[in-house]
Design a protein around this nucleic acid. Structure first.
Ligand SMILES: Nc1ccn([C@H]2C[C@H](O)[C@@H](COP(=O)(O)OP(=O)(O)OP(=O)(O)O)O2)c(=O)n1
Length: 524
DNA sequence: CAGCACGAA
DNA sequence: GGTTCGTGCTG
């Protein structure tokens, strides 16, 4: 269901196929109403909202274009996001700007904003900036991400920011409230009782929004266009959830102009898979009865956390045949005890896998991710940093970048302390304790050097501190970790550092970075 | 705690 | 490809 048009609400009530007695209990229902327990309830209703081709959408909106225009977000000669209009031409993230232009001559390229070497502020530039003298800034996308989060967090009490463009939402309280509104009989249920059967028809206001994945039974019955079966309260929760989810996506679109894809299911892993199923601008709902059918579309390695070596090693360890559907195979060939036996070294993993292949692994939403560190980095292709002045120039950029992000963090915390009055931590000022530089040499070896930095409330002072100490670290690093004296005619280091930095050669580097860490609140 | 491997967007 | 961010292990 698109956020851009509204369909007439149905004029007939949804028919149900009540299961008698209901599988669910008073406790299941009331667990929904508490953010600490709702993810564990079988009635749990979790959404995942993902911005479509996020960076490309940011560029599209900035340039005043529509989602019909083939916009991409570029970074040097490559693409980091491709709008759905551009994907119609067969363009993907793997394309270069040149190959993309061949596929679509009218392609619109919004290059990510950049810092110039030696400067503290980013800006959008005309044409394509040169990677040797610039560093990409992601501030713009973080800023837009924050605006979207604001819309989400205004409406819901438990959300988890999963990345710059994805958030999980626990709809438990909103679903609970609606259930009580539509089904007052639920108020009469007593502790330790089962819930009553669902009514044979739902109230007129309740109907599905989005793509409801069919169960194996429904596929077998092959009811073309027949309504998805609603047989117990978990299905009703998802009907309600699908409406709440669409409302949210419409709010995001109305207020900020962004389209989203979303998934709705019993837990985060299923919601995530569902969110990727229909893109762009749509939502997909997985009822508990259709989990099995839905999982047929995916392999174990499609599940979050299983995409790398862990997923592969599990498939090897369990000797899943090469042609087999990994998820079904594991589900059908291993009991919980057998999995524990096969994965002896990690019982927790065995239990987790057992639930994952059944689509039943419940993960808690972790609300507040405290920022622990921030890194600003730059890769170099070919000897782009020739002398000390170049190196200082990048430290200038890094300290400017980190400064901008600390300003953002301050604003976010300020907002938090204003909106959530009950937050005890009134002192929201966070400052880093350590500053470190990292350098990667052409032989891939990475080395770091760090020091403690003083606390200042004033962020522009922090910026100066970061720049000056970054330069100190750099000098110490070159002296201790490289043969800087040798590449400069054996002039002693002390003397080198008194000379014009432009005249001081440095060893070749593949990457430089500046990191602040231990970002914490002051004691007093 | 630092440094690294891993997983993700 | 580049620029991030987070977790968990190991020393
Ligand atoms: N390897 C990657 C993957 C993503 N991103 C950035 C650019 C994307 O716009 C944003 C979100 O990533 P997604 O994986 O969600 O992909 P998109 O949002 O681009 O597309 P989709 O509509 O498939 O979610 O993160 C990135 O910089 N590098």
């Amino acid at each position: 269901m698109s956020v851009k048009n509204s369909k007439e609400p149905p004029t007939t009530q949804l028919h149900t196929s009540p299961q008698s007695p209901s599988q669910f209990t008073y406790q299941n229902l009331h667990d929904l109403n508490d953010p600490a327990t709702s993810y564990l309830s079988p009635l749990s209703t979790i959404g995942l909202v993902d911005l479509n081709a996020f960076f490309a959408q940011v560029e599209q909106i900035r340039l005043g274009l529509t989602d019909q225009d083939p916009v991409v977000c570029g970074q040097w000669h490559s693409l980091i996001a491709v709008s759905y209009a551009a994907r119609k031409y067969g363009i993907s993230r793997m394309d270069t700007i040149a190959s993309a232009k061949t596929k679509c001559p009218n392609l619109i390229i919004g290059h990510a904003p950049v810092y110039k070497k030696g400067e503290e502020y980013w800006s959008y530039v005309d044409g394509l900036p040169n990677a040797a003298n610039h560093k990409v800034s992601l501030d713009m996308y973080r800023r837009e991400s924050r605006k979207i989060l604001r819309v989400i967090n205004e409406k819901f009490d438990l959300t988890e920011k999963a990345s710059v463009d994805e958030s999980y939402i626990d709809f438990g309280r909103e679903v609970f409230t609606k259930l009580m509104e539509y089904f007052p009989e639920l108020k009469d249920v007593e502790k330790d009782q089962s819930l009553p059967d669902i009514p044979s028809e739902l109230p007129l206001g309740l109907y599905w929004e989005g793509e409801v994945i069919k169960s194996e039974q429904e596929i077998a019955d092959d009811g073309e266009g027949t309504e998805p079966v609603i047989k117990d309260w978990d299905d009703v929760c998802l009907v309600i959830g699908s409406q709440i989810l669409l409302d949210l996506r419409r709010d995001i679109y109305k207020e900020l102009g962004y389209t989203t894809s979303a998934g709705l299911a019993r837990n985060k892993l299923m919601a995530k898979l569902a969110g990727g199923f229909k893109k762009p601008d749509d939502q997909t709902i997985i009822r508990n009865s259709s989990i099995k059918a839905f999982l047929k579309n995916f392999e174990l390695t499609d599940i979050t956390g299983m995409g790398g070596k862990l997923g592969d090693s599990l498939i090897n360890q369990l000797e899943v045949p090469p042609q087999a559907h990994t998820i079904s195979y594991i589900r059908e060939h291993f009991t919980l005890e057998q999995l524990k036996e096969e994965i002896k070294d990690d019982v927790d993993l065995a239990v987790k896998l057992y639930h994952i292949v059944r689509g039943m692994y419940a993960m808690e939403l972790t609300q507040r991710m405290e920022v622990k560190s921030m890194t600003s980095t730059k890769n170099f292709t070919f000897d782009a940093v020739a002398n000390l002045e170049d190196a200082y120039g990048w430290i200038k950029v890094f300290s400017g970048d980190l400064h901008n992000r600390l300003v953002d963090l301050d604003n976010e915390n300020l907002e938090l302390s204003l909106t959530k009055m009950e937050t005890k931590e009134k002192n929201v000022i966070r400052r880093p304790k350590t500053l470190s530089i990292g350098v990667v040499f052409p032989n891939r070896i990475r080395q770091t050097r760090q020091l403690q930095i003083p606390f200042y409330k004033d962020l522009s002072k922090m910026k100066t501190i970061m720049y000056e100490n970054g330069c100190v670290l750099l000098r110490e690093f070159f002296e201790a970790n490289t043969n800087i004296s040798m590449v400069n005619n054996n002039i002693p280091c002390k003397e080198l550092y008194t000379k014009d930095p432009k005249k001081v050669k440095v060893v070749e580097m593949q990457n430089m970075s500046l990191t602040i860490s231990s970002i914490h609140q002051p004691k007093s």
